[in-house]
Design a binder for these strands. Structure first.
Lengths: 335, 335
DNA sequence: GAATGAATTGGAACCAGTTCCAATGGGCAA
DNA sequence: TTGCCCATTGGAACTGGTTCCAATTCATTC
């Protein structure tokens, strides 16, 4: 069995209070005593019990992360950023994976009532009003990553600007007939980034004096095969678009496949730009919009640790910029 | 602040022991009392404090996972399997990400000495003798996933069989000049699956009466670009191979790129088979060997929970089979 | 009606820490 | 020499649970 603070105290011939003081770096210990205690700790290979420590401190020294963990590669990349910060801090990381809505309810309830964490990072999920209320009551500090809200600090990505950038890139190349292939705007699992991308698309069109046409706007379930169908319809229009902006790389890939099957050359006959810059995008040489995923994790985690250290802190919002990654699927239109 | 067991006891007009008994489903409580207590719990929205519970139980109710978390997509898929099992159990998941060797040492030391977990899952890492000794002393139950050892239970993948399957697939198609592009066998971060794949390759050749030639065996750092170079060398031999077995999909992709740049058609002039079946493989229509990644996580986690429930348990080894996924990059050789 | 025993219950002791309070002892000033 | 103050220290009380032990209640048996 592991040794306890009493063993150390006995071994060093001092009281438990003194050992505790040494461990926690209190100045109220003489150098001589400190040496004795450190010697005993070394000799017994002692380290304080995690859970006893947390109980008596009244702190959990744990950060919870709630995320639809594995559903998208982007979430993993954000987690990586979070982990990087946590592992240099005294906190432990507790990951709660929410792949189903049912789990979601149980999870937040459980976390709040059993005091499992000091702080919570919510990744790519929008909290309901009820959840926010519970978290506030429990005084668990919360930071949202990749979602906006008025209730807590957050790190978001400027998807409106991202949508604008993508569209402007196409406009600069000379395109006028630009379609937008989008996911549904259903925010039930809670994220409105798709809608923002669409807004950016509209803004860019407007600035360039290009009228928005519903013919060039197609919504469908987020999948490669559905995007394939959407693209087929768009490309069979009497006046087909010369460029398509997809609200994700996954969809962009479906669009490219559709173009190939219609014997259209990408980017010769059709330019395609995606969004996300997933790993696949590089292999496929896909022009896309990159989000600072890793950085969003780092910044969000820093924000949380900061608010745990300084009790009083206002709500803060960090908006990270996106970047156009020009590769081989966009080019000036023919003629 | 959250209410405590004392609040509930007072509210229900009973002793704390009785409340504890109700919570833990002890039969030593009358129905009448149980009702009273449950009513009080409901009313106060009480749930026992996680850390106090763990301290007095002498159990952490936590499973630790040590993994080079994000380095490869395969690790994420395994974690997903682990999470699936954990979330249906009373245990929490504590992830320790080891991307650097330095962190590794600190991490295991820390886990052992501060009694952070009841059980540990080690993913895609081989433990050193010293680490094993520490874990044994600490009585922390350990299960290894994707690695073999004599010290603890494990879920491994039969990489020898996988290497054999891949090679046999090529032989069955009629290939005789089959090269193997491999990672280095350096097991410092600790995993000998590459070596096993190579052994399987040799076995299959032998069974088919094809002599092994070092000309057709190339080792290099695990990367797409290095594999590109390796393939270039192989394909410029006087008698170039008609098929290449790559020890990972990532490498296979580099090989395909090399073939394209040499104006060789895949699979017309060169067959390529990978290993892993990463997401990319499907998009690229790559023939490959699939490992039951998700299942390895599930089984490993079950093994661990099982050994936590039944104190005495022998070391168990589960070997999971691999599967050839035939897609479009392999075909019978010309002539 | 007393003795036996089972069912139920309250509460002290314990888990392994932290922190507060009171006590000790030495040094220095009056 | 006495008194005071400060640095240092030991240990009790506390964190919020679980569990064991002893006590109470009540029905059953002789």
């Amino acid at each position: 069995m592991a040794s306890t603070i009493k063993d150390v105290a006995r071994h060093a011939g001092v009281g438990v209070g003194t050992v505790s003081r040494v461990i926690n770096g209190s100045p109220l210990v003489s150098d001589e005593t400190r040496e004795k205690v450190l010697g005993a700790i070394e000799e017994l290979d002692y380290a304080p019990n995690t859970f006893a420590r947390r109980l008596s401190l009244g702190k959990t020294l744990t950060i919870g992360v709630i995320a639809p963990f594995f559903t998208r590669p982007s979430v993993v990349e954000r987690l990586r950023g979070i982990d990087e910060v946590i592992s240099e801090s005294p906190y432990d990381l507790n990951i709660f994976n929410l792949e189903t809505l049912d789990r979601r309810k149980r999870c937040i309830d459980d976390i709040v009532r059993t005091s499992k964490v000091d702080g919570l990072l919510i990744v790519s999920l929008i909290l309901t009003a009820d959840e926010v209320r519970r978290l506030e009551e429990s005084r668990i500090k919360t930071v949202q990553i990749d979602a906006t809200s008025d209730y807590c600090s957050q790190v978001a990505i400027d998807d409106i600007a991202g949508g604008r950038q993508a569209t402007e890139h196409l406009i600069e190349l000379g395109h006028r007939k630009i379609a937008f292939v989008s996911d549904f705007f259903d925010a039930s699992l809670g994220n409105n980034s798709m809608e923002h991308r669409f807004l950016g698309y509209q803004q860019a069109l407007k600035s360039a004096g290009i009228p928005f046409s519903t013919d060039y706007f197609s919504q469908g379930k987020h999948s490669r095969t559905v995007a394939y169908q959407q693209a087929q319809s768009l490309l069979r229009l009497v006046k087909p678009p010369t460029a398509i902006f997809a609200s994700s790389d996954t969809q962009a890939i479906g669009i490219i496949e559709a173009a190939q099957d219609l014997d259209l050359d990408v980017p010769g006959d059709l330019s395609v730009i995606g969004y996300d810059d997933i790993e696949l995008a590089e292999y496929l040489n896909l022009t896309t919009i990159r989000q600072p995923l890793h950085e969003s994790g780092v910044r969000g985690c820093e924000l949380l640790l900061d608010s745990l250290a300084n009790e009083r802190g206002a709500i803060r919002k960090i908006i990270l910029p996106t970047e156009v990654i020009v590769r081989g699927t966009t080019r000036a239109p023919k003629g």
